[in-house]
Design a protein around this nucleic acid. Structure first.
Lengths: 369, 369
DNA sequence: GAGTGTCAAATAAACGTTTAGCTCGAGCGG
DNA sequence: CCGCTCGAGCTAAACGTTTATTTGACACTC
């Protein structure tokens, strides 16, 4: 028997397919005796249900999609972990879909990916990037709830849920620390703005620079280390002076920057200080140890999954009552999670004891922006 | 219209579902006129096919499963990339399934995962670890071909295809280099042997140590940085002397080891030299820059996917001819890919110019082991 | 004008489950 | 002994596609 079906079990046990189905998934209406026979037979012939047939027939959907751009950014691994852990407790599964084609974001790939998730009839979507207007509308047409994670909802649909680091506050914190060092020329090496965090980070840095009377230059490159290195090179080649500090927008940017600074023979933090945005495993082993912002990505992932689950369950309940099957979003579905700066030495702080850092009054965080 | 089906398009256009189906996927037997009407209508009402229904009805399967343990080991990201790129060109999709539950391999999770892949009726499986006898048999009962990647087939089924780094040769290479430095006491910090590469690496190191008249100690820990650090600590706490060189079995081991050595205040390579097994992005920025073995994981992934695709296509063809639907494996489905040592400074080689390294005759690689 | 071939399109039967609705007996109270 | 309930199980109709087979219209040939 190459690919046994429920009917094969039926044949073997002499029970109807109904009974088999009930017995297999532990529903009642089946005697203990029959259930045992069914399970034995199933195990015996190596039966494994056909997911496609189940999905087709069942009404309740039990998977959610996660849209990601360049997973290779190790920051996302924690995020995924957080999502998985929450979703697994509901016995759902996560479909991870990367919209980057060899490392670069690709708009058509975004379209294909959203389509694929709808084809799979996912119950909901978590997206790490702001989706296009068309895709947001498509998902909403299919009544599929979306939660943005570490990215903001598109401008056309600002009411959509999101869970993010408080990037503005975080950037103010970074900026405050740099101000404390007395740095006056800041260079922000940034990734493109399809990742909406870029905008918030820049905004926070700009405000911090202003209140510290420092100058901020923004250099943008594609979201990978090689491009970042090249962008930095072009900038430094033409700049009149090396900036006091380089702020890397994320880890690929940081990697590219460090490689280029090493190549150029600039010493950190003597010639130029460096700070970055994502804590990662090796940061303390790099020379000098890196001062980084620690985003609590695992926690963010969990929160996002919880929010999505809540919306889906409410939606199912409403549908069961015969009400609208549109997902219902609430204002408290928009969450911000704090982040803290991990101060090591690349910012100019010395090993414990000998630092050239003057604490400054904390810049008040802007409320309700 | 909340969730439009093919019948809705049928209703709108006045054509039968047959015609819609043909038109949508570009088959012929449909006039250009009708096709245009169908596509317009589909686009208009936002129709997206139901994957479950397609999968159920279609005979040809078009997804493959990838079994992984702890994806967070960044080494796998390239591997996955290589597989994706090959598989995408066939318009298939990859289902990635991690059998680690919070970072640790879990046997039950392996069983669940294999089941899940069979439920999805995948056309084939690529596994990064040696599967249990039961799971191998289960897959073979369902006529699902398996290719092992960076791991060997289980002892019970040695004929199964595999694509691996030539770990023995690679370890001999590592060992040869260490011998050239004149190191006499080697410490191999290893992960558990469910990853079969561990065995081959140890074997190669052992032979290299023997022929260099050096002593090899193996310390094993769970496959994560924290456990590795602890294992190293326990060993060093009781050892009479610090070994000449530490060989980290993979990146989590390396990370744990470096953290612990830093904590202990041992200087690399003065007090102890260090080499590792997987090249990664930050390796050149660590102090001192790390000497690592560069496995060509992208290439390995591509090869594995190509091999699997070949087997699946042959299987489909055979089935179409009414022959056996069992996958046919050939001896040339077992491949080994070379690796080269990237020499930096953690092994004791100085910056270009001042090294204390004496080249040694290359240890001949054992043929046909 | 009968036979033949071609093309577009329709019909209806799958695919492997789940599930609403029904049947059948047994048990039980009156 | 009647009517009722209840549990165990059956039958058959879904779910949304694909596809083997059939139909019908039209053109072409002898």
């Amino acid at each position: 028997m190459a690919r046994p079906t429920i009917r094969d079990i039926s044949r073997v046990t002499g029970l109807s397919t109904y009974t088999i189905s009930q017995a297999l998934r532990g529903a009642d209406g089946v005697s203990e005796d029959s259930r045992a026979r069914v399970l034995a037979a199933a195990n015996d012939i190596g039966y494994i249900p056909n997911r496609a047939a189940q999905d087709l027939r069942r009404t309740n959907r039990d998977s959610v999609g996660l849209i990601t751009a360049s997973t290779s950014n190790s920051y996302y691994l924690d995020l995924i972990g957080g999502i998985q852990s929450t979703v697994q407790s509901l016995a759902w599964t996560v479909i991870i879909a990367d919209v980057a084609v060899d490392g670069h974001y690709d708009a058509e790939q975004e379209d294909r990916t959203v389509r694929r998730l709808i084809e799979a009839r996912v119950a909901g979507v978590i997206s790490t990037l702001t989706l296009s207007k068309a895709n947001t509308e498509l998902l909403s047409k299919w009544d599929i709830p979306i939660v943005f994670v570490d990215s903001s909802p598109p401008a056309e649909a600002p009411e959509l849920p999101s869970v993010t680091t408080d990037n503005y506050q975080a950037s103010m914190q970074v900026g405050g620390h740099l101000a404390g060092h007395g740095y006056k020329t800041w260079l922000f090496l940034a990734y493109p703005a399809i990742w909406s965090t870029r905008v918030e980070r820049e905004h926070g840095l700009r405000d911090a620079a202003a209140s510290a009377d420092a100058g901020l230059v923004v250099v943008e490159s594609a979201n990978d280390a090689v491009s970042a290195g090249q962008a930095l090179k072009s900038y430094l080649d033409t700049a009149t002076a090396v900036p006091d500090v380089l702020i890397a927008g994320n880890n690929p940017m940081l990697l590219g920057a460090l490689e280029h600074l090493q190549l150029r023979g600039l010493s950190i933090p003597r010639d130029i200080a460096v700070v970055g945005y994502d804590e990662f495993a090796w940061s303390n082993l790099i020379q000098p140890p890196l001062t980084l912002l620690n985003e609590r990505s695992g926690e963010i992932g969990q929160q996002a999954a919880r929010t999505l689950a809540e919306i889906i369950l409410a939606q199912d309940a409403a549908e069961k009552r015969g009400e609208s099957s549109m997902p219902a979003y609430r204002p408290d579905h928009q969450l911000q999670v704090g982040a803290e700066l991990i101060v090591r030495q690349s910012c100019g702080c010395g090993p414990v004891g000998h630092h050239s850092f003057t604490p400054q009054p904390t810049i008040p965080s802007a409320k309700g922006r």
